[in-house]
Design a protein around this nucleic acid. Structure first.
Lengths: 325, 325
DNA sequence: GAACACCACTAGTACGTGCTAGTAGCGGTG
DNA sequence: CACCGCTACTAGCACGTACTAGTGGTGTTC
């Protein structure tokens, strides 16, 4: 089924079909003809040929989402679902891609010629240069056009505010060991520090914890000695590591130490004790990301930055500070 | 940089360039010309235009790997790396794709026009029909051309044989709760049953365990009452669930109950006690998968079915049966 | 030395789309 | 009624590749 078939069926030229299908600007098509073409394309179940379109226009109607190679939060799934759906409704396809560490292979953006490339963190300079040289102009985030990435700002703030609201006066920050997370950890820590300084409490005591590292237990002792009673963990896994370490040192959670995670992952709900966490509205976030992508690809207006995407999910790992030390 | 540019540089026609680049069958090219063309393409850093190729040939040099939406074994990463690498060396690109449950969106195979589609389990009839109608003929696994999927056969057998070798006479099989795994669970269980019947011991007692389900503990009791002393778990996560449940019932592992996992995941190494498991040679497996894909795409000879891809990784969760009950 | 086979290449076209340049029709205006 | 401006289209090209049909040249055979 080609555009020519549709044209024949509708009794118009192939060019007209193109104009109708793409809503080409600067072309006027009578309502009658438009309907005739649309009806014909429906009837013949016409689907534009992607390769031909890519060849002609030099760009594919694909949004390439570059995912990091560390394990992704469970909640990302919803995000992807909404994002895919929203992009599909505008004719775009979402392809996810995780570059391999050693890879000498051609990166996917060179092959697919996507209209937009979205990354989670910043791209490396080489990758950026590579994409630019391939004529990909819509790269998110670009160093030049930094996005507000609002989603990651309210969560960590909420964590800190929640603990402070429970009466904790000295916070700790639990830092995961995985070096690949560094960029994101730094961002979240910064926000927590910001809240502390705004509220007039001391800066959080930062310690690293890790499941496989027995030294993690010493982090808990260090916090304890520093008078820390509330821990902001990078995410739920880190929170679980903190609680495990505390258990090994005989420190009770939440009686002696409150811990709050981030992401509201299944782990948080299942852990013993269940971990208080911050849930992020992945649906809203997916829509926002799609909006940004369509802004770059189609010139749609920039979507409003979503508000209130994060909310506290109270469970048992964080409690009111009862005893002053 | 187009083939025409290379042709001009090498002093030949564009057609000749095509013949050289694609090693077109039924075309003879003198060694001198071939070298000249190759040199020119090197010099100009010529890369064939994927969209144009796809348009002309109707197929993209892409292998689409359809991944399930359940969390994948950690070891898959190595598999993907090798697979990508091997395919890349033959000019193919691996794209991974996870269909969304609700998705009304066009599946990726319709857009990318891949040369080969590889799935993990069986495809649904609709998906299969869809792909066929799109002219994709290389689908793995296809119901018609069932692959021996050798990799999944030796692992479960090893698990059972290992426990039997340790003196256990009545095995249990730990079944995960996730219904999406059903197909794979059934396959592994079948192999374990096969080993039992070959060895002349009773069939394994099958019970379901799940992290979030307190009823899991009753599975352990049931095994205990049935005289089961060794558990073959579907994978390491399931093994961990069995051990947790046993701990809750006061049954010691491995003294009273031996458990063996599958996949040799990081969890197995970290758990308390460390979980004996089965490691699979993902590198060999990746090469094999690549071989199958290239067989379908390029008519390469079928690769040899790899042997000894699985090996026991002994740790502490499985031990010799000392006391007879 | 004519006929033929074969090698090594070239000319040229088709794939399906997006879009530029061109044009027929037509109502309005001087 | 010639001219203009505008609407509503159409003709046809270009994108870069893969490949068919064709062709000149060389060696072989009878």
């Amino acid at each position: 089924m080609t555009a020519a078939d549709v044209a024949r069926e509708a009794g118009v030229s192939p060019a007209t079909v193109g104009f109708v299908m793409n809503r080409t600007k600067g072309q006027t098509i009578s309502e009658a003809t438009r309907k005739r073409v649309l009806a014909a394309s429906q009837e013949l179940n016409y689907k534009p040929h992607h390769a031909a379109r890519a060849l002609r226009s030099g760009r594919n109607k694909i949004v390439l989402l570059v995912l990091p190679d560390w394990p992704l939060a469970h909640s990302l799934r919803t995000n992807l679902e909404v994002l895919t759906h929203e992009l599909a409704s505008h004719g775009y396809t979402l392809v996810t891609y995780t570059p391999l560490a050693d890879s000498t292979a051609t990166p996917l953006w060179a092959i697919l010629e996507p209209a937009v490339v979205i990354g989670y963190g910043q791209f490396s300079d080489e990758d950026l240069a590579d994409m630019k040289s391939l004529g990909i102009r819509n790269i998110i985030p670009d160093r030049a056009t930094a996005q507000p990435s609002s989603d990651f700002t309210s969560g960590p703030k909420l964590q800190a505010q929640y603990l402070l609201g429970l009466g904790h006066k000295q916070l700790g920050f639990a830092h995961p060991a995985d070096p690949r997370l560094e960029e994101f950890v730094a961002a979240r820590l910064h926000l927590v520090e910001q809240v502390c300084s705004e509220t007039g409490v001391p800066a959080p005591v930062v310690r690293q914890v890790d499941y496989q590292d027995p030294a993690s237990a010493s982090a808990v002792t260090a916090w304890h000695e520093a008078g820390v009673t509330g821990i902001v963990a990078y995410n739920d896994e880190t929170a679980a590591d903190v609680i495990s370490a505390a258990a090994r040192k005989g420190i009770r959670v939440p009686e002696e130490l409150s811990v709050i995670g981030h992401d509201d992952s299944p782990l948080a709900a299942r852990f013993l004790p269940p971990i208080s966490s911050v849930g992020v509205d992945m649906e809203q976030l997916g829509l926002y990301t799609a909006g940004i992508a369509l802004h770059h690809a189609e010139g749609h207006p920039l979507p409003d930055v979503p508000t209130n995407t994060a909310r506290i999910v109270p469970r048992e790992s964080a409690a009111l500070l009862v005893r002053r030390r």
